[in-house]
Structure formats: structure tokens, C-alpha cells
Design a protein around this nucleic acid. Structure first.
Lengths: 226, 226
DNA sequence: ATCTGTGAATCAATTCACAGCC
DNA sequence: GGCTGTGAATTGATTCACAGAT
């Protein structure tokens, strides 16, 4: 969605299963709760949270109920505690190591992106196939050659690969990541990747997002496009 | 999701309504069909398309049936004709003009992104609030000052705004876009935007995408995160 | 009195399965 | 025989509405 999502293979429910639709909203709540903390807010009701997230209260309560019963009737939710519970559920209590493939514009933007580190993702390395780029710095990280991928992944216990290559190189990048032992890939290249079934892929295509938006724009204002 | 989506307000069904879930898949088909054309493929069955898209044949047929009955029983779909029909439905038969707000790393990457122009989106201008950046070139487009937004939008008939600012400036950027008459916003800043109800917003948060992927990574390999 | 948590009801999306056409 | 198009059945997500806790 927004992006095209290959539903990652879920073996047997190893923990309480949360509906996919709810999982995609948990990071939204997390963001709002973190902001609330900086503003000194320590309690929020489902109604208030819904307002901030642009959802309705029933959905918020249902979503949060999947985490357990962490609200207080008549009062609301303790912000800090809820942050902890959502982080626990999303596996964000400890950092994840990420390797970015592709040191072009997008790789640059992603590596510099403050939203990664602040959300518990550390870019271990940026790799590129172009030797001319190797050694240069991208967002405080030295670009290394794609041939080093295996040792980077193993030595640094990297678990997520981000593909930021041109579309034509994306499949190759995916294969290299898989060969290096990566099981989770976030793909920003505009291509459908073919990977072994045990590998989870999430694709975000910036162009497709615009196309989808364009559809609704057109629906709202049919005259706009003569 | 991919992503957090505020379902754009849909007034009365001005044309045949296509389910939201199907709309998000149309660009995927489009991409595959375009690739097939470059490979000289002119016919595809729902089964083949499903294989290429990582979906199942029934879903593909149902999705395509919303466009009309453009397949041939016993044969499949004519690739070129299907491309035309999907483009027509998504409103991609003519180009859309886009203005990018924020000339930082992300704005740079987006403006340079080949996937925009190849998909029928033309970046009319990049604007930034930092006068030091004004006049510099970003992907062939000269950066202009954010104060020029209104005249850019009016003179160039821009219909979509892309927010590529730091999160703290995103709400302000949205307000400026709305004031300039923009009704469709694609937001890459990690914030929930507050906009008038007639404005459609689609938010893509790169960090959230990683968080969602992390959840499934953790589900698949619960031992991985001790 | 207020707000959570949750079954029950509703609505949407997906899948099934097969009639109809090539 | 092979493949589309589509009602019917199923599965999943959302909303309703209220019992129960503070």
C-alpha cells in the first residue's frame, strides 16, 4: 500500500496474532504518543487518541485491546506505559540493524533520515556496486562495496535490508541480500521482487503512491482533468 | 500501507466506484503490464498476471472486472489495451503537475526520481523556505522560494503537492499548499497532518514502514531478538 | 459520570466455483 | 480445453452498543 505489500509469510501464531490492519496502525499511535510525551501529556482517552490519529474511538480501543487490557476504565490510557506495550509488540524494545543497498539520491535520503534512528533502526552500512562511491560518506556512514555484504551482515548482525537502487538493479540487490542471510527486505525500487518464501518483502513505490492519490484527486474533481 | 492513509473523502460516486483495495493494486498491474510490453508480451492471462504480481488469479480477475469486461475468454487480456484502461481509470491519460515542498535530501531524491516522470507526473517546481537553497538546481528544476507557491500553483496548474520537509515544518507546508489551492497532498514527513476535509492526504512514513516490517521479522524469527 | 473492553452486527475484501464464451 | 466474468460463500475489518470497572 500505499504501497504494494506481499503479506509476509506467517508460520504458526507464535504469539497473539494481531490483525494486519491493526499492525499498520500501531506505529501511528506510537508516533502520536511519543509526541504527547514531549508535550507533557501523560494520559489519553481513546477519543483523544482517535482525534489525533484521524480515526474513531472504537477502532483505537479495539486496536489497543489486541495488546492486552492496558487502559483504565473511566480514565484512559497511560501514555508512557502504552508506548512501552506497543514497542514490545512491534519488537522495538531493542534496535534493529539495517543495511541500505544503493548510495544514490534515495539511499542518501534514507540514510540521513532522522526518522530511522529515532525509531530504533540503526543503519549499519550503505553499500553500492559503484566502486567510485565506495569510501565516500553518506549521513555519517562510509559507503562500502556490495561485495562486503555478507561480512557486514554477519559481523554486525544486520537483520533488515533496504533496497534503494534503480529498478533495474533491485532484483539483483534482493538476491545479494538473501544470499547474505537477510530475511526482511524493504524495497523502495519500483519493481516486484522475487524472493524465497521465507523472506518478507515490503515494497514502497513512491510513484505508485502518487498514482493512487491521483485517482482520488480525479474522483473529487472530475472537471480538473479535461 | 503500507503507510498511514486517510481515506480521501469521496463525494457522490461520480463514476463506477472501485473498492479501495483494488485501487491500490491497479498501479501494480500497470507496472507489470508496462514491463511486459518492453519484453514484447502482448497477451497475459489472469493466472500469469497473478504470478508476476504475487497475487492469485481470482483477485486479478475481480480487480480487472471493475474496469469493465476487457478480457477474452479462453485467451486472456490484451496487454496494451489493459494499460490504456487502467490509465484511464487512474486518470493517467494526461500528466499531473506536482510541486515538491522541501529541497533537502528527500526532496532531492523525489525530484530526481525517474519513477515520477515515467508515470505521468511532472515536477513543476521545488520550493524551500531557506533562501540559501533558492536558485540552486535539483534534478533539472530550479529551487524557488516557498512564497512563490501561490503563483506557481496557479500559473502552472499544479494539482498535487508533495511534502518532503522535516516533520516540524510539515503542517506549515500543508497549510501553505492548501492556501495555494492544492487539494491533494502526498506527505513524506513523519507527521499526521490536519487539513480541511475537502483535501486528500496520503502519508508515507519511511520509518513506519520499517517498524511494520520489523514486526513480521520478529514474528517469523522470535529468537532473533533476544 | 466516564471511559474501557468486547461480544454482536455490519460492512468490505477475498476466495470459491461454475456458467458462458472463445 | 482454457480462461474470463461474476454471483455466492467465506473470511477479515470496522462499527455498534453496552456491561463492567474506576
Amino acid at each position: 500500500m500505499t504501497d504494494l505489500v506481499k503479506p509476509p509469510s506467517r508460520p504458526e501464531a507464535l504469539r497473539r496474532r494481531i490483525p494486519d490492519a491493526a499492525v499498520t496502525r500501531l506505529p501511528v499511535y506510537l508516533q502520536i504518543l511519543n509526541k504527547s510525551i514531549t508535550e507533557g501529556v501523560s494520559q489519553l482517552s481513546s477519543d483523544q487518541l482517535a482525534g489525533l490519529a484521524g480515526l474513531n474511538a472504537a477502532k483505537v480501543r479495539k486496536d489497543l485491546s489486541y495488546l492486552g487490557s492496558y487502559g483504565t476504565r473511566g480514565v484512559g490510557y497511560d501514555v508512557a506505559y502504552l508506548v512501552y506495550q506497543i514497542k514490545r509488540e512491534l519488537g522495538l524494545l531493542n534496535d534493529w540493524k539495517v543495511v541500505v543497498v544503493g548510495a544514490g539520491n534515495l539511499g542518501n535520503a534514507l540514510t540521513n533520515y532522522a526518522g530511522f534512528s529515532s525509531r530504533g533502526f540503526e543503519v549499519s552500512a550503505v553499500v553500492d556496486i559503484d566502486s567510485a562511491k565506495v569510501g565516500k560518506k553518506v549521513g555519517g556512514v562510509v559507503v562500502r562495496h556490495v561485495d562486503d555484504l555478507l561480512s557486514i551482515v554477519n559481523n554486525d548482525k544486520v537483520s533488515i535490508g533496504v533496497i534503494a537502487t534503480p529498478p533495474a538493479s533491485a532484483q539483483r540487490a534482493a538476491e545479494l541480500l538473501v544470499a547474505a542471510g537477510i530475511k526482511s527486505i524493504l524495497n523502495f525500487a519500483a519493481t516486484v521482487l522475487t524472493v524465497p518464501s521465507e523472506v518478507s518483502v515490503r515494497s514502497v513505490d513512491l510513484g505508485m503512491e502518487l498514482q493512487i492519490l491521483g485517482y482520488y484527486e480525479q474522483l473529487n474533481r472530475p472537471g480538473a482533468c479535461q
